[in-house]
Design a protein around this nucleic acid. Structure first.
Lengths: 238, 238
DNA sequence: TCTCGCTCGATACGTTGTACACATCTGAGG
DNA sequence: CCTCAGATGTGTACAACGTATCGAGCGAGA
């Protein structure tokens, strides 16, 4: 594993490259991979496909990333570079902005919410920067370190959970709208109908009949988020 | 696709099986698959491995599940059968119990938090029942249907997001503690150290130095959950 | 009893991640 | 300017995966 003998991916990235052979670089690999995933989804990310789009032999990228997991981390770090919080806003606007910007990032790159969990866990520099900024926004309010981190993680957990759902639904809908073509929600709706016909879910059925914002994902996201922020404010007295 | 010509998996499951050939059944398939995933993780789930453990040819399970995705849905539904809320508790204890029981379920089956998102989305009967119970607990409080669903989904999103993180960490730690053997957190800690040595994350570093409950996942989970429930109560006036 | 349809077995194909050995290019030291 | 070690890209190959396909065996209704 040639790429691994020099410690961490991030460490290698920060020293000047000893041989500027320039046809391939972590930057170019990340950009290309992100373009593929944005256009065709996470399942289109293949080491061979990546190599093809880079105009290079299948095994070439392995000189720069130690494997597919490494590639996914690189992609995550690449897109998180776009996520920069304005500073000096107070804890609540900071956390709210963080959540909203993260949502927008995940809508721009729907594959972000579909990554395998070890890739979501990855401690990449740009993700560390986001965490640092969020923690800094919570500093100096009289909270102990554990509480600060828990608050940040609670918001992060909500955002990831909500977006995992939202982007799975939107991916499913767009997939079948371009393949089947006939009816939108061609998979979900009939299955839901079948469940309803069993009569076992009366409250759920009421919801389906009377709800008017079933497709307003932003409204749903904001409601949960504001509840969470309200609770943080009242419970912690900040 | 023989298994698909008869509509939904759940529909097939509810009619009496026409040929009681009994060597294979969705029940037995689900139990066996869950046992594999519980013992060896999600990546051990292979159609071939499943067939081997069932004592059957590799393609045999395809008569009962239409593919791997179907298998994962079956597994999800199987374990969610254990999740039953006590009724008549009021909305807040109900939602809290739901969250805590879901967390325990996901700790018992760590693969639940690592499923690909389309499997998390699956509308299985037992998941529908959980949703029905949660919505019922929110009924009659003067909330409109959209708000009820959003509240339920907010809690669900928090639980999934938090457990996705928690179970990824615990999986990582247990994996390397049984493989590398030397140091616990052998992957995470040195990488974190390296990040800290860059000096770019002072607030984060303070956290690492002064925090005392870094490993108390239950405490962190409860704090975020209680904040969310507080916020729901105050913002919606219930 | 015969036959039909469901169940399971055997074989095989295409795709994936990646190990390995070889060829080539680069910049530094003579 | 030449050479040479090491970094970089190529070609080939393999094992494992999901699953399509076809044929054999069994049970139940005629």
């Amino acid at each position: 594993m040639a790429a691994e003998k020099n410690a961490f991916l991030w460490e290698r990235l920060e020293r000047p490259s000893p041989a500027p052979r320039q046809t391939l670089s972590p930057q170019r690999i990340a950009t290309t991979a992100v373009a593929i995933a944005d256009a065709e989804g996470l399942e289109a990310i293949t080491m061979r496909r990546l190599a093809t789009d880079l105009g290079v032999a299948p095994m070439a990228p392995y000189r720069h990333v130690s494997g597919k997991d490494d590639l996914l981390e690189l992609m995550v770090d690449h897109v998180y570079a776009d996520l920069r919080l304005p500073s000096g806003l107070g804890w609540r606007p900071s956390l709210r902005t963080l959540a909203v910007l993260t949502r927008e990032l995940m809508l721009r790159h729907r594959w972000l919410a579909q990554l395998p969990p070890q890739a979501k866990l990855s401690l990449t520099p740009n993700r560390m920067t986001v965490a640092e900024q969020a923690l800094a926004a919570l500093d100096g309010l009289g909270l102990d370190a554990d509480t600060m981190m828990s608050v940040f993680r609670a918001v992060d957990a909500y955002v990831h959970g909500a977006m995992s759902h939202e982007s799975a639904v939107s991916t499913l809908v767009s997939e079948q709208s371009l393949s089947g073509g006939a009816e939108l929600r061609d998979d979900l709706a009939p299955l839901m109908m079948w469940h309803m016909r069993t009569g076992r879910y009366p409250t759920f059925q009421d919801y389906l009949r009377t709800a008017t914002r079933k497709d307003d994902a932003a409204w749903q996201f904001d409601l949960g988020l504001d509840c969470l922020l309200d609770g943080i404010a009242t419970r912690l007295g900040i």
